[in-house]
Simulated assay, not measured.
Amino acid sequence: MGYEFTGTDLDFLQSEGGAGALSAVGDLELSARSSVRDITEVRSRFPDHASALIETVTVRRKARVKLSDADRWLVTNDAVQQATPTLVARRRATRLVGRRVHDVTCSIGGELAVLVESAELVVGSDLDPIRLRMAAHNVPGATVFRADAVTPTTRDTVVVADPGRRAGGRRRHDPAALQPPLPDLFDAYRGRDLIVKCAPGLDFDAVDWPGEIEVVSLDGGVREACLWSEGLSERGIRRRAAVLRSDGAVVEFTDAESDDIPVEPPGEFLVDPDGAVVRAGLVRHYGARYGLWQLDPRIAYLTGNTVPAGVRGFRILEQSKFSEKVLRQLLERMDCGSVEILVRGVDVDPAILRPKLKLRGSVALSVVITRIGRSAVCFVCAPGTTDQPV
Rank of each mutant, 00 (worst) to 15 (best):
P350H: 05
A83P: 01
V380G: 04
L331Q: 05
R146F: 06
P140H: 11
I108P: 00
D335A: 09
I39S: 13
G345D: 00
D208T: 13
L87S: 00
R172W: 11
V158T: 09
Q294T: 13
E55T: 12
T306M: 10
G26R: 08
G98R: 02
T40G: 12
M134Q: 08
D69V: 13
P266R: 04
L342G: 03
T254N: 10
F204Y: 13
V80P: 10
A206K: 11
A24F: 14
A83F: 06
G313H: 06
A119W: 02
F322G: 04
V80I: 15
E268V: 14
D259K: 06
A241M: 00
P389I: 12
R91V: 00
V339D: 03
T386A: 08
V42D: 02
L330K: 11
R333M: 08
Q82H: 07
V150G: 04
G373C: 05
E324M: 08
S258W: 04
V75L: 13
T370C: 11
L357C: 05
S323Q: 07
L359D: 03
H137Q: 01
T56M: 14
G236N: 06
V216R: 00
G110W: 10
V104L: 07
R284P: 03
V339M: 09
P350Y: 09
V196W: 09
R72P: 01
F186Y: 03
P85G: 10
V311I: 15
R298N: 13
M334T: 11
F12L: 08
T151F: 12
L74Y: 08
V57A: 08
R166V: 12
G141C: 03
T76Q: 09
G169R: 08
P266F: 07
F186E: 13
G281S: 07
L353F: 10
R374P: 02
G361E: 05
A136Y: 08
L178C: 06
A280L: 02
T153Q: 12
V243W: 03
T40K: 12
D296W: 11
A32K: 12
G191Q: 08
P175L: 09
A19C: 09
L10T: 05
R90M: 07
D193A: 14
F186W: 10
V139P: 06
L227W: 00
A79M: 11
P265F: 04
V250D: 04
